[in-house]
Simulated assay, not measured.
Amino acid sequence: MASPSFSNILNTLSPDLLIYDFNLPWAPTIASSYDIPAVDFMPVGVSMATFSLHKFMKGGDEFPFPKIQLRGFHETQFWNLINKIAVDRTKNKEGSVEAMQRSCNIILFHTFRELEGQYVEYLSALAEKKIVPVGSLVRDIDDEDENTEIMEWLDNKDESSTVFVSFGSEYFMSKEEIEEIAHGLEFSNVNFIWVVRFPMGDKVVPEETLPNGFIERVGERGRVVEGWAPQPRILAHSSTGGFVSHCGWNSIMESLKFGVPIVAMPMHLDQPLNARLVEEVGVAVEVNRDINGRLNRENITQVIRKVVLEKSGEDIRIKAREFSEMIRMKGEEEIDEVVKELHQLCKWK
């Protein structure tokens, strides 16, 4: 949306409050011209935002939370992103840093204190704003998520015997990655539902990208689905015992809500830092890559088996269930706090 059109909307509606995200860093400036308080909502993890803002503001200074670090080629990716932000700022291009700075007194994050409490406090100091977690915004399961064929297949599997494999809608795996993941799934001897996606317009037959004979060898143990599957419903199913995930933030929040431990396989953007976080709190194990960022089928096999089957992964499975129970018990507690904070801002208007 162009800023002139947005200005006209604000002028016409005259809302008491504006909530915006980092895609519209200019929105609070326009809201201010109409004396409308504006609050930034960050649909990402506080730990990732904290790490990024620390590195942006303090350069090479050591991050005070040593377990949240980047490794190998993910570190190179991150610094390329930080350098791009710095260049954009010299060209007066607004971005997420400006979006946070212009938020009125508080910044909302899609998270909860039990997951990221220590980072909430540090980011509040860095940003000089109060960081307010809104809790889990994962919606409840409804009939729109139904996929009868997949769900009937899951119904016939043992409890916690299946992994759901999905890497989000914005990353497309290379042929080499597909091959390593396929062999990892095959060697694990764990049931699986694997969602594979290809760029729009590519005429690809999924079976042709998989290793020769893969479909026949895994047989009824595995399902390969192109494009889409009802992720929340699959994660909530009793047969699902693990989530092989790119660690996008929404996927993490869904996994925690439904108590599913994570096989972390981050690809880019915020995902590597998200993977460090869920590993730190004990609900995930990350699949290590080599120095060039390549995946290895043996590592994939070992992590899947640990998270889903082996006794050594029992603590991870228990911790995931504990987070799910905590989210259920808290209900709308965080939202109630958010409402109080926003109501106070509106009173100041």
Results as ranks from 00 to 15, higher is better:
residue 186 E to M: 04
residue 108 L to P: 07
residue 157 K to A: 01
residue 141 I to N: 06
residue 159 E to Q: 15
residue 248 G to F: 11
residue 245 S to D: 04
residue 70 L to M: 05
residue 195 V to Q: 05
residue 333 E to K: 13
residue 122 Y to N: 01
residue 284 A to W: 02
residue 319 K to T: 11
residue 9 I to A: 13
residue 259 G to R: 05
residue 278 V to D: 02
residue 333 E to N: 09
residue 7 S to D: 10
residue 129 K to M: 07
residue 248 G to W: 10
residue 281 V to R: 08
residue 79 W to D: 03
residue 15 P to R: 01
residue 286 E to A: 13
residue 191 N to W: 07
residue 107 I to S: 08
residue 47 S to H: 02
residue 150 I to E: 06
residue 55 K to F: 06
residue 60 G to L: 08
residue 130 K to Q: 14
residue 334 E to K: 06
residue 304 I to F: 09
residue 327 I to N: 01
residue 16 D to Y: 07
residue 275 A to C: 11
residue 272 P to G: 06
residue 249 W to F: 11
residue 303 V to I: 15
residue 198 F to I: 00
residue 166 S to V: 06
residue 178 I to T: 11
residue 48 M to W: 14
residue 123 L to R: 01
residue 258 F to K: 02
residue 225 V to C: 01
residue 175 K to G: 01
residue 136 S to P: 01
residue 232 P to F: 05
residue 225 V to S: 01
residue 299 N to F: 11
residue 43 P to Y: 12
residue 13 L to P: 00
residue 16 D to V: 08
residue 75 E to D: 13
residue 185 L to V: 08
residue 200 M to K: 15
residue 221 R to Y: 10
residue 165 V to M: 07
residue 36 I to C: 03
residue 16 D to M: 04
residue 171 Y to T: 14
residue 105 N to M: 12
residue 122 Y to I: 06
residue 281 V to Q: 07
residue 221 R to D: 05
residue 148 T to N: 08
residue 110 H to K: 14
residue 87 V to Y: 08
residue 98 E to Y: 11
residue 48 M to I: 10
residue 244 V to P: 02
residue 331 G to T: 10
residue 247 C to I: 10
residue 306 K to C: 12
residue 117 G to E: 06
residue 101 Q to F: 11
residue 160 S to W: 06
residue 73 F to K: 10
residue 222 G to W: 03
residue 317 R to E: 00
residue 38 A to L: 05
residue 125 A to E: 15
residue 189 N to A: 12
residue 193 I to L: 13
residue 267 M to A: 04
residue 50 T to L: 04
residue 348 W to R: 15
residue 201 G to C: 03
residue 282 G to I: 04
residue 20 Y to H: 02
residue 35 D to C: 13
residue 300 I to D: 00
residue 59 G to I: 08
residue 63 F to R: 00
residue 4 P to Y: 06
residue 203 K to E: 09
residue 268 H to K: 13
residue 175 K to C: 01
residue 122 Y to P: 00
residue 95 G to K: 05
residue 307 V to C: 04
residue 216 E to F: 07
residue 46 V to P: 01
residue 308 V to C: 03
residue 197 R to V: 04
residue 8 N to L: 15
residue 29 T to S: 14
residue 129 K to S: 04
residue 287 V to W: 04
residue 305 R to A: 02
residue 17 L to A: 10
residue 310 E to S: 12
residue 5 S to K: 13
residue 255 S to W: 12
residue 342 L to P: 08
residue 51 F to K: 00
residue 264 A to Q: 09
residue 99 A to E: 00
residue 35 D to F: 14
residue 21 D to F: 07
residue 290 D to F: 03
residue 241 G to V: 08
residue 69 Q to S: 13
residue 282 G to S: 05
residue 180 E to V: 09
residue 173 M to A: 10
residue 155 D to N: 15
residue 124 S to L: 09
residue 278 V to W: 05
residue 318 I to K: 12
residue 291 I to N: 11
residue 249 W to C: 06
residue 190 V to W: 03
residue 167 F to A: 03
residue 348 W to F: 13
residue 179 E to P: 00
